Simulated scan of single mutants.
Amino acid sequence: MTPERFQELSREESLRLLASVAVGRIVFTHQALPAIRPVHHLVDDGQVIVRGDPGTILLSAVDTVVAYEADSVAADDSIGWSVIVTGMARRLDAASPPGRYRALEGDGYFIQIRPELVTGFHAGPRA
């Protein structure tokens, strides 16, 4: 296997790639310990929107700094790209999500992550 070379991506390219997939992982603190949950997301005007299900621990992410990560992994387990967004998570009012958030189907609530830090990289074989 050829070692991978990592190329840093711009903020714009990172958010574009993040918007190209529907599932990622939110990293937050629950009962003073790190927690990671897979969730569906969409990117709306540079903000990451995730849906939480009623009664889940994801509510402990609200009003805290979280990380959100998504990636693309090929069938041979090589990483195509990875994006990590870090920022404050806020619960959106029931009246505020526009209809396009309905793509995140299900009963629940919406959490908006305002990206303060956006890092991304593309990994490919070394030339």
Rank of each mutant, 00 (worst) to 15 (best):
A35K: 06
I36A: 14
S78F: 04
V39R: 04
V39Y: 04
T86R: 15
Q31F: 12
R5N: 14
L9H: 04
Q47W: 07
P3S: 14
V21T: 09
D45V: 00
P34Q: 11
L117S: 12
D76L: 06
P3Y: 08
G46L: 09
L18P: 03
G55K: 03
S82V: 15
H40D: 10
E4A: 14
M88P: 05
L59T: 12
A127N: 09
P54T: 00
T2A: 15
D77V: 03
L18I: 07
S14F: 00
I111F: 13
L15Y: 02
S82M: 09
H41F: 06
P97C: 12
Q31V: 14
A70R: 01
L17H: 00
R90H: 14
A95S: 14
E105W: 11
R11V: 13
R91I: 15
M1F: 09
V21E: 03
A70N: 07
E13K: 14
Y109D: 11
A19I: 01
G87T: 03
I57R: 09
S10Y: 05
G120E: 09
A89Q: 10
Y68R: 03
T119Y: 03
D107E: 15
G124S: 15
I57L: 06
V21N: 03
L15F: 04
P38H: 05
G46N: 12
Q112V: 15
I111T: 11
A75N: 06
T86F: 11
G106F: 10
G80S: 13
P125F: 14
W81T: 08
R16I: 07
L17T: 01
P115F: 06
D63V: 00
L92T: 10
D76W: 06
V65G: 00
G106P: 08
R25W: 02
I36F: 05
R126F: 11
R5M: 14
D93Y: 02
L17A: 00
V39I: 08
S14T: 04
F6C: 07
Y101K: 05
L92H: 09
E13C: 01
L15D: 02
L17S: 01
D77Q: 09
P34D: 10
Y101T: 12
R37N: 06
R25D: 05
S72E: 11
R91P: 02
G87I: 04
L92Q: 13
R16L: 10
R114D: 15
T2N: 14
S20Y: 00
L42P: 01
D107V: 13
F110V: 09
L58C: 04
A74C: 02
A74E: 05
L9W: 02
G46M: 11
G99K: 10
A22G: 09
Y101I: 07
R102P: 00
H30D: 11
L92F: 11
L17V: 02
P125G: 15
P115Q: 06
V66P: 00
V43E: 09
I111L: 15
T56L: 03
A35P: 03
G99T: 12
V85A: 07
G24Y: 00
D93E: 15
V43K: 06
R37G: 00
S20P: 01
S60Q: 12
G46T: 10
V118H: 10
A75H: 04
I26S: 00
V50E: 07
G80H: 10
A61C: 02
D71Y: 03
D63I: 00
R102N: 13
E12T: 12
S72M: 04
V23C: 01
